[in-house]
Nucleic acid binder design. Structure first.
Lengths: 339, 339
DNA sequence: TGTAAAAATGCAATCGATTGCAATAGTTTT
DNA sequence: AAAACTATTGCAATCGATTGCATTTTTACA
C-alpha cells in the first residue's frame, strides 16, 4: 500500500501536468475546463484515491456542507433517547441531507450549553441547524432565531413562533384521536402526556376541543402529566388504577411508546383492551402494528417532514423566504380501539 | 444585535491589544501565556460570542476532532433503521465521544460507496471511523483495516479478524439463551435469525453447542433465517405455524425486535407464552420489560461498549496498540420464559 | 494570412488559526 | 548595576483549496 503521504490537489495537478487552479476546477466540474482535461484529472484523482481536503475547502469557501442536528432532550436525557421515533427522524434527516449533498453532525448534548448555535455556526462547523423537538420552553431556540442564523425546528408549526417550524398539526392530531375514541363510545378519556410540553400542549388543546364539542367529560383528574417515556406511562397508569380504580375507558397518549407503557399496566391488571379501555398512540412507529393488540395511532409522516425541513433550510441559505409547514397526519385504526 | 461580521481571532487579539499568537495560545490555555492575559482574552472571547473557526484550525492542525459513525445497513436499509437498539448505540457513542472532546458525524448511507474510508479520513472530515455492525460480509471493512486507517467496529470480538472489534460475546450469548430454554424444559428450540450475518453466526454456534451438549434436537427446520426486523419475524413465524404447526416450544431470537414480532404472531394464534412457547430476546432494549409478557433477554452493555470503542479509537490516534474487547452480557430472566 | 473573439489555463492572493523561533520584558544573582 | 536567566509575547510561515484576473492557446472570420 502506498499510503505514505496524503496527496494534495497540487500533487494531482503535477501528475496531470496542469496548475492547481485547473485541477480544482476540473474536480468541481467547471465547464470552463476542457472536457478531456477534466476527465483526465478526475481519472487521476480516483486512481490515486484522492479526495479534496474538506478543511481547506471549507476555510476558503466559507461553506461546510454540514448540518448540525440537535436532539432537544434537555429534560429527560436518559429515557427518551430510546424512543424509536427519534431514530426514525434522524435516519430520514440523514437521507434527505445526503440527497442534497449535506452531511449530518449529530448532537444530543449540546443543547445544554447556552451557546450551541454559535458553537456550530460561527465556528464553521456547520452551515445550519435542525433542532428536533421544541421541548417545554423554546426560549433558547427563540434566542437563536432572533440572531437570524439558519435553523429549522421540528415541532408544532401552528403555534406561530418567529422561526421556521415543520411538524404535524398536533392540535388536529389530538382532536382526531379524541374524536375517534368518543365516536366509538368512550366517555371518560384520559390525556396521558405533559401539557407543558409545547407540542403536547397543542394536542391537549385538540383533546379538550373534541371533548367540549361532544359534550364529553373534562375533569382535571383525566389529565395525567408524565414524561414521554413508556416507563413513566406504565408507572402512572399502574398507580392511578391502583389508587383510584378504573374511572376511565379511553386514553389519548403522547406517543406510541407511552401507549405501550399504558398498555402494559392495564394488561397486567387484566383490563380488556379495547373493550374496557381503548388507547390511541401517536407517531406510528414500526412496531405499533406489532403490539398486542395492535395500536391505533396518529401517523406522522417523518420522511416527508425530513425533506421539507432540509428544503426549508436550504432556502434559508439561499436567502429565500421560508415558512413553517404542516405535515399531514393520519389516523391509523387498529385493534387498541373499537371501530 | 451586532451580528454584522463574523469575528476572527485577529479581531479578538486586537481588542485585547495582543498578537494573534498570544490570543491563540490564551484560548488554548497554554500556560506559557500569563494567567491574567489568558483570562482577559477568554473573557473578551466569550463576551463577543467568539469561537475559533474550526475549518482553519483543522487545516492547520490536521486534526478534526470528529469521528464518523457509520451504520452498516447495506442489506435492509428500510427496516432496521427503526431498531431502538441502534439509536441507543448512537446515543451512547455520542455521549462517549463528547466526553472525550469529539463530535459525531453520522452516516447511514455511505457504506454503499466503495470509498467511504477515504471519503471521511483523507479528506479531513474525520479523524477516525466507528462502524456499527459487521453485516453479512466484512470485506469492505477488512479492506479499510488493511490501509491502517483509524477504525473501530462494533461486532463480534471473538471472531479473530485483523481490525479492532468491540462487542458482546455472541456465541456465549446464544449459548446462554439456549441453555436457559433447555434448563426450563424446552425440547424443540427455534433459532430465528440469519446465520450468515457475522454476529448472528456466532450466536448460532452457541445455540448449536448448547443443544448438542444437552443432547437436544438439532434439525434444519429449527433454523429460520430472516432479516433482523420485527415484521420479518412476524411473517416467518406466522407462516411457519400455519404450514407446519407448532412443532417448537422455544425460540432463540436475534434481537428484541425480532422477539416482538414472533410474540405477536404467536399471540394472535392464542399460543401461550411462556407455557407453550418460550422466547428469549437479545439486546434488552428499554421496552423489553414492557412487552406483554415481559421479555427474557440477553442484555448488551451498550454504554460500556461505546466507551470502550472510543477509547480504542483514541489509542489508535496515539499510536498505541489496540485490541478487540468483549463486553459483558447478562441473561435477564423475565416472563417470556419459565423459570 | 492576419486579426478579432472565444476558449482554456495559470498566477497569486486569500480564507483564519497555529507554532517554531526570535525578540522583548522582567527577575535574580553576584 | 551588569550579567544571566526566565517568563511573556510577537513575527511570519504554513496548512490546502478556491477564484478574480491575467495570460496563453485555439478557433473563427475577413
Amino acid at each position: 500500500m502506498k499510503t505514505n503521504k496524503k496527496l494534495t490537489l497540487a500533487d494531482i495537478a503535477k501528475l496531470a501536468g496542469v496548475s492547481t487552479s485547473t485541477a480544482s476546477r476540473a474536480l468541481n466540474d467547471n465547464p470552463v475546463i476542457k472536457k478531456a482535461t477534466r476527465d483526465k484529472i478526475k481519472a487521476l484523482a480516483s486512481q490515486y484515491n484522492f479526495s479534496i481536503n474538506a478543511a481547506a475547502s471549507r476555510l476558503r469557501t466559507q461553506k461546510t456542507n454540514v448540518i448540525a442536528v440537535i436532539l432537544n432532550l434537555i429534560d429527560h436525557t436518559e429515557q427518551s433517547i430510546s424512543d424509536p421515533f427519534l431514530l426514525k427522524v434522524v435516519g430520514e434527516l440523514n437521507q434527505a441531507l445526503n440527497n442534497k449533498g449535506y452531511e449530518l453532525l449529530l448532537s444530543n448534548s449540546f443543547m445544554a450549553s447556552d451557546d450551541w448555535a454559535n458553537y456550530f455556526l460561527t465556528s464553521s462547523r456547520a452551515d445550519g441547524i435542525i433542532v428536533v423537538g421544541q421541548g417545554k420552553s423554546d426560549e433558547k431556540i427563540d434566542a437563536v432565531a432572533r440572531t437570524g442564523l439558519p435553523m429549522v425546528v421540528w415541532g408544532d408549526p401552528t403555534s406561530g413562533v418567529d422561526y421556521t417550524v415543520v411538524g404535524s398539526d398536533n392540535k388536529l392530531g389530538g382532536y382526531i384521536a379524541t374524536k375517534h375514541l368518543i365516536d366509538n363510545g368512550c366517555k371518560n378519556i384520559l390525556f396521558l402526556g405533559d401539557p407543558e410540553h409545547l407540542e403536547l400542549a397543542e394536542r391537549y388543546k385538540g383533546y379538550r376541543q373534541a371533548l367540549s364539542e361532544a359534550g364529553g367529560i373534562l375533569e382535571d383528574r383525566l389529565t395525567l402529566s408524565i414524561d414521554i417515556t413508556s416507563t413513566a406511562a406504565y408507572e402512572k397508569i399502574s398507580e392511578t388504577v391502583l389508587h383510584h380504580g378504573l374511572f376511565f375507558d379511553g386514553i389519548v397518549t403522547s406517543s406510541d411508546m407511552v401507549a405501550l407503557g399504558a398498555l402494559k399496566a392495564l394488561k397486567e391488571r387484566y383490563i380488556g383492551i379495547p373493550n374496557e379501555v381503548s388507547i390511541v398512540g401517536f407517531d406510528d412507529i414500526a412496531m405499533a402494528e406489532l403490539f398486542h393488540p395492535s395500536l391505533t395511532t396518529i401517523r406522522q409522516n417523518v420522511k416527508e417532514a425530513a425533506e421539507v425541513m432540509v428544503n426549508q433550510l436550504v432556502r434559508q441559505f439561499e436567502g429565500k423566504p421560508t415558512q413553517s409547514s404542516v405535515i399531514d397526519i393520519e389516523l391509523i385504526p387498529r385493534n387498541s380501539t373499537r371501530h
